[in-house]
Simulated assay, not measured.
Amino acid sequence: MLEAQLRVVKKQILENDRRVRANARETELGRRLMEIPGVGPLLASAFVATVADAHAFKSGRCLSAWIGLVPKQHSSGGKERLGSISKAGNRQLMARRTAKVAAVALANKTARMVWALMTNGERYREPVIA
């Protein structure tokens, strides 16, 4: 009986995965978001479903803060002092920071890229190394 239930659950999981992938590819925005490294069908469809209008956010930082990916605050007396989020490459970041800090920094960077693509309508371009 448990084996039969496990097969049914696995089948349902596969069907839901198929639907998520199909929904992400269905919209032009979803296809553009999936071009960002680290953004797959699940994340792209989640952004498309939850962020109806990216212009509601003033900047990528506001979207990132709305998600909950913000640096530590050291504000006092009305002066805003925020901790930094590194823009260094993944390998350098992992060498200097713990895995959790690096993961949050990369998620923040990805959220800001998603906001930029959602607001300007462009496609993702690989950064050019000078």
Results as ranks from 00 to 15, higher is better:
76 S>R: 13
81 R>A: 07
55 H>D: 10
80 E>L: 14
51 V>Y: 15
64 S>C: 07
80 E>M: 10
115 W>A: 03
94 M>C: 05
16 N>L: 11
49 A>G: 03
66 W>R: 04
9 V>I: 15
97 R>A: 04
129 I>K: 08
123 R>W: 05
121 G>S: 01
71 P>V: 08
110 T>Y: 00
115 W>M: 04
129 I>G: 00
106 L>R: 11
72 K>S: 15
77 G>H: 05
126 E>V: 05
109 K>C: 03
2 L>G: 10
129 I>A: 08
108 N>T: 11
130 A>N: 09
21 R>Y: 03
83 G>V: 08
62 C>E: 15
63 L>H: 01
45 S>F: 10
16 N>G: 02
98 T>R: 01
89 G>Y: 01
99 A>F: 07
115 W>P: 03
61 R>E: 13
60 G>R: 11
14 L>A: 15
11 K>P: 00
26 E>I: 02
126 E>I: 03
79 K>G: 01
109 K>Y: 03
83 G>Q: 08
22 A>R: 15
87 K>G: 04
13 I>Q: 12
30 G>A: 09
86 S>R: 00
22 A>Q: 15
110 T>V: 04
108 N>P: 00
96 R>N: 05
115 W>Q: 06
82 L>P: 06
116 A>N: 05
89 G>R: 06
47 F>G: 07
60 G>H: 10
29 L>W: 06
13 I>V: 15
36 I>R: 02
126 E>W: 03
73 Q>W: 06
40 G>T: 06
